[in-house]
Every structure is written in structure tokens, then in C-alpha cells.
Amino acid sequence: MEMYGVCALLCAIGLFFIVMSYGASRAGRSGVPFTGAVFIAAGFLLTPLKWLALLALIDPGFLMITLMIKDNIDYKKAVPLFDKAFSDGGYRQGETCKDKSLDITVPVINETLSRALFTGHMQIYHIPRMFFAVVADDNGRYILLYKQKDTEIKALPFDEDNTLTVSDLVYKGKPAPVTFEIKNRSYS
């Protein structure tokens, strides 16, 4: 009888983590993947009803694995398209600009991401889902190449302030403009 008490406790802890992971994913965060699955699987594996350990599959971490596989497949499909765009446009590739950063602002989810500027390298951004690369032409002017879902690669030049807003992106059926800004890094 004691094993059922341990099972109930482990499953309750696991359910707590699963609910927290679902709540975090709805808020655009990752939560604690697989933690709830481990507790639920351990709880049911201690009982004679071991097949109930399959309930651990309701953990959103398993969905994240399928999304990671899908991202990898989509990435591999997009690489040749971007490589062709790089060569057709005659853009320089693979330059790290140590003195510059790329800020990506997405007002829909109230997020700003800052990263080092690396030109001619395709990257993925998830909300809204898009593939993009910042390239430089022969004059040193920056251009954004981007693609969302089944669309063609589009090229937009940055303005004189090295700022660009892409307004034709969609997230959950609604417009989701994204602002890209290239800034000079200051080291203090």
C-alpha cells in the first residue's frame, strides 16, 4: 500500500511540473521540459500498473523534440536557397563584425534580442517564425534577406541609421512586425 502513496506523490509532483511547462509554453517560455515526465514515469514504474508510465508522454518536452526535428529539416531546406541568394547577389559571407551588434525587436511578444552581427549566415527566429541573414554589399551597406514559411527570399536594405522594420510577417494569423537594428558595440 505504501508504494501507491509514493506513486501518488511522485505523480502529483510530475503533474505540477507538466502544468507549469504548459503554462510557460503558452507564455512563450520553455518551462522545465521532461521533469514532469520523469516523476510520472518513476511513480508508475513503482506500481504493478507499469503501463501507466506511458502517461509521461503528455509532457510538453516531447512536443519540443518534434519541433526541434522540424526546425532542423526546415533549416536544411532553406540553406541552399540562402546560399543561392548569397552567390546571386555577390554578398560577402561569414564576416564577424566584433564592433557591431544586431538587435531584433518583436513588439507582439515584447521581446528584444541582441546578438553579435555575423554577416552572410542564415539564422532562424521563432516568433514570428522566419529565416534571415544580414549581408553586406560591395559598398558596405547592410541588407536583410528573409523568408517566412513557403515564401520566396526577400531582400530589404537597411536605412541610413542601420534600422529596418519588416512589416509583412505573421504570427498566429496576426501581423507581427519585427525591427532589426545594427548598433555599434560599446565596450566599457
Rank of each mutant, 00 (worst) to 15 (best):
M1G: 14
V6L: 14
L9G: 15
L10N: 02
C11M: 04
A12Q: 04
I13C: 06
G14I: 03
L15K: 00
L15Y: 09
F16Q: 05
V19E: 02
S21C: 15
Y22H: 02
A24H: 07
S25N: 14
R26Y: 14
R29Q: 11
S30P: 05
S30N: 08
G31E: 01
V32P: 03
P33W: 11
T35H: 04
G36H: 00
A37C: 08
A37T: 00
I40Y: 04
G43C: 06
L45V: 06
L45F: 05
L46M: 15
T47R: 02
T47H: 05
K50E: 09
W51D: 07
L52G: 01
A53V: 11
L54V: 08
L55I: 11
A56V: 07
L57F: 13
L57A: 07
L57W: 03
I58T: 15
I58K: 02
F62T: 10
F62V: 08
L63F: 11
L63E: 06
M64P: 06
T66L: 12
T66S: 06
I69W: 15
K70M: 11
D71M: 13
I73G: 09
D74E: 11
D74T: 03
K77H: 07
P80V: 05
F82P: 03
D83A: 10
K84E: 12
F86Y: 10
F86M: 01
D88R: 08
Y91W: 15
G94F: 08
G94T: 10
E95C: 08
T96G: 09
K100R: 10
D103M: 14
I104M: 01
V106G: 00
P107H: 03
P107N: 03
S114G: 02
S114K: 05
R115V: 13
T119P: 02
M122I: 13
Q123C: 10
I124L: 15
I127S: 10
P128C: 08
P128W: 06
R129G: 15
F131Y: 13
F132D: 00
V135K: 00
A136Y: 12
D138R: 15
N139R: 15
I143Q: 08
L145H: 01
K147Q: 14
Q148M: 00
Q148F: 03
I153M: 03
A155Q: 12
L156V: 14
F158M: 07
D159E: 09
D159L: 03
N162K: 11
L164I: 09
V166H: 02
V166C: 05
S167W: 01
D168V: 00
L169C: 05
Y171A: 06
Y171K: 02
K174H: 06
P175H: 08
A176S: 04
A176T: 01
P177H: 04
V178D: 00
T179E: 13
E181H: 13
N184P: 02
N184M: 11
R185C: 14
S186G: 11
